[in-house]
């Protein structure tokens, strides 16, 4: 899907005959969002065992620390973020009304439905896969880090210490496993099934059925159902998400604003060509006048 879209854009840029607007582009993605896969992260069920961190590190060869070192809960004392050598980390948040109640929250790339990073990327090194993942192609990447600027979740990490072949590093949604019909490594290992992998629309149903079955246990809001146009990874929390590390975001997806401005400016190259023609006309008209004046003089 995304490949076609990119080619489409390339063609558009090549020939001004084709027309492209930001809104048609947005609709194209929206119609697909129900079919993508996602993961529902239930932080109320999560026990903070950090097995997902271990499984992720194993799957991606990020760390060879042994299983038992992940029993260490002292890491929760500080707030951690995913980085170039850890695609996912588990943090803790507390109930503001009762600070003795602690919940664990796994964080990783949200795999947005309309990813700002994908819209930002200058060479199309980031793409939204039709299965749901936002994939990165290091071969294309020029290392400009605009995706990091664009991401509203501060997810993409960069190998700053690598002088020659630095890459953007983030959760891959184990897209190779997903393509084979398996669930991501973190979901597979989760002992308490705090992570549920499945079609995104079914996960939303599941979330609401949990609200219904456990009154009072959840803050009844599926974080990621609508945030920035919806995300493939969604969260259930025990308290209002504003008391967690999840950023407060509106439902509007981020790319349309810049894309509408861009496509407005470039719409079939008409505005630039119009400006060109106008300037040419001015140049010519005033030039002629001057010549006439010179002749008169």
């Amino acid at each position: 899907m995304s490949l076609d879209r990119r080619k489409f854009l390339g063609i558009t840029a090549l020939s001004s005959a084709t027309l492209l607007t930001g809104s048609t582009h947005a609709h194209e993605i929206e119609s697909k969002t129900d079919e993508v896969y996602g993961v529902l992260v239930d932080t109320v069920v999560c026990i903070g065992c950090r097995k997902c961190e271990w499984a992720c590190n194993q799957e991606h060869g990020l760390s060879d620390k042994d299983l038992k070192s992940y029993e260490d809960k002292s890491v929760f004392k500080e707030h951690r973020r995913p980085n170039a050598s850890a695609y996912t980390v588990v943090n803790e948040y507390r109930d503001p009304a009762d600070s003795s109640k602690a919940y664990s929250m796994k964080v990783q790339c949200m795999h947005c439905n309309e990813p700002a990073c994908v819209s930002a990327c200058i060479v199309g090194a980031l793409e939204k896969n039709e299965l749901g993942s936002v994939d990165y192609d290091a071969w294309k990447c020029i290392g400009c880090r605009y995706c990091i600027i664009a991401c509203p979740f501060q997810v993409p990490a960069y190998e700053y210490e690598n002088p020659l072949t630095p890459q953007i590093r983030k959760c891959t949604f184990c897209h190779e496993r997903v393509a084979k019909g398996e669930s991501p490594a973190c979901v597979s290992i989760c002992p308490n099934e705090a992570l549920t992998f499945g079609p995104r629309s079914k996960l939303i149903d599941l979330a609401h059925s949990r609200f219904k079955a456990n009154p009072g246990r959840y803050h009844e809001h599926v974080y990621g159902e609508n945030e920035v146009g919806g995300t493939s990874w969604m969260y259930l929390t025990a308290v209002d998400t504003k008391h967690t590390e999840l950023p407060v975001l509106s439902a509007a997806p981020l790319p349309p604003l810049t894309e509408i401005i861009q496509h407005g400016i470039f719409k079939s190259f008409v505005p630039p060509l119009a400006l060109y023609a106008l300037l040419g006309l001015i140049m010519h008209t005033i030039g002629d006048k001057n010549e006439e004046q010179e002749v008169k003089e």
Partner: peptide
């Protein structure tokens, strides 16, 4: 500033053109 500066020519490859990107423009 670019991390993979040797790839800067990718911006010129029509195959990698990304018309949605402000930075591309």
């Amino acid at each position: 500033d670019l991390g993979r500066y040797y790839n800067i020519w990718h911006v010129m490859l029509p195959d990698m053109w990304q018309g949605n990107s402000v930075l591309f423009e």
